[in-house]
Design a protein around this nucleic acid. Structure first.
Lengths: 204, 204
DNA sequence: GCCTAATGCAAGCCTTTGCTCACATTATGA
DNA sequence: TCATAATGTGAGCAAAGGCTTGCATTAGGC
């Protein structure tokens, strides 16, 4: 086991607006590289160059390459989390189908925003040690789904939520990998899968 | 786009039993490395060392690192393909639920055999240009599912098969990532998802 | 204006790693 | 037995890439 722990937190927080811009440029450059070429093509030198920042500056704020990736993942998960909270607020009490619909829309939104980036980040995420902050966000999102299911009397809401999320992930992933662009259609198919799972008796 | 094509086919076929053993040792070593450390930790030098073979011998048979990985993927897909063909033969005409069951078992079998290796190879597979041979196997497997669905009068069997396979993939992936070991339970849950999808009307 | 802290710079160190090449050894067939 | 083809070897090349370090520049308070 060569599990040499790699630091994945920003080295220091920028105090002046100059450095805030630097950090922002670094993250945006990294995102653009991931978006176009996937995780393989991301190198710290390339990130710095594309950001219009020297490699030294990059390492002033991010101790490792992974720290940059972790920051992008944190941002993505925050957006997703907030989208889900909003969706849940707006659809609360409108019936199971409505809530399911709202949650599917929320989870699909970040794929819509930037499919390639989302795909690359998810790919990287399950290859990287999980951050406490990210773990917390994920747990919150899971609780949101569990809560919704519980309120409608679904049996074993934890396990059910786990499977429903897995179904949504799997279908999104496959659709994107196959180059499908029609997200409304994908939405309908995921709803069909989710509602079908819920209405199907646990044992055949 | 820097899609510099990398040769992924064996450089030459071994003629003597000596060299067949060498090739075999290389593949097994590569598999063991993937199984324990994922794609990141696989280097050609390490593969050669673990195989008890010199690095020169390795490159005599595999022109690139990717060629080794491609060969492993080919093997995995062949096993899966044969498992599905067998499952289909044995369950033919016994009813939709039986056939679904048999196909789920077949697709789960290779995860059962070596979950970590299967996960690593799938991970690598959708990051690598697809081999014609592998594409053919995948198409055959897809046709198998489509055929079964069609025989039971399922509407739009192609699209349905696509989604069902995605559902199975997603659930397996999530279960394995979460460290779930009970494959019988996983089987039941996938069956629930599949049958639920099939019985749910395409529009809510 | 000046001083300190913050920020920015980029040459290049150093490790990793894919891969070659010149040579050594072993099998095979006549 | 011997010639030839097949196979095996490993030092080390070359490129890639993560990261350090020593120095230059700029911002902001006094």
């Amino acid at each position: 086991m060569t599990s040499s722990t790699v630091p994945i937190h920003p080295r220091k927080t920028p105090r002046q607006s100059r450095s805030r811009a630097t950090c922002e440029a670094i993250l945006q450059a990294a995102a653009r590289i991931l978006e176009r070429g996937g995780g393989e093509s991301l190198t710290t030198n390339l990130v710095a160059e594309l950001a219009g920042v020297s490699i030294g500056s990059l390492y002033q704020y991010y101790p490792t390459k992974e720290a940059i990736l972790a920051e992008l993942i944190r941002q993505m998960r925050h957006e997703m989390h907030d989208d889900m909270v909003t969706a849940e607020r707006q659809s609360a009490g409108q019936g199971l189908e409505q809530e399911v619909d709202a949650l599917i829309s929320a989870t699909l939104r970040h794929h819509l925003r930037n499919p390639n980036l989302a795909k690359a980040l998810e790919h990287i995420e399950d290859q990287l040690p999980m951050d406490a902050e990210i773990a917390q966000l994920k747990q919150n999102m899971a609780k949101l789904v569990v809560g919704a299911l519980a309120r409608y009397g679904i049996n074993d809401p934890e396990a059910t939520a786990f499977d429903l999320v897995a179904i949504g992930h799997g279908m999104s992933h496959a659709a994107i990998a196959a180059g499908q662009k029609d997200f409304d259609d994908l939405h309908r198919r995921i709803r069909r899968a989710v509602l079908g799972y819920l209405r199907q008796a646990p044992d055949s």
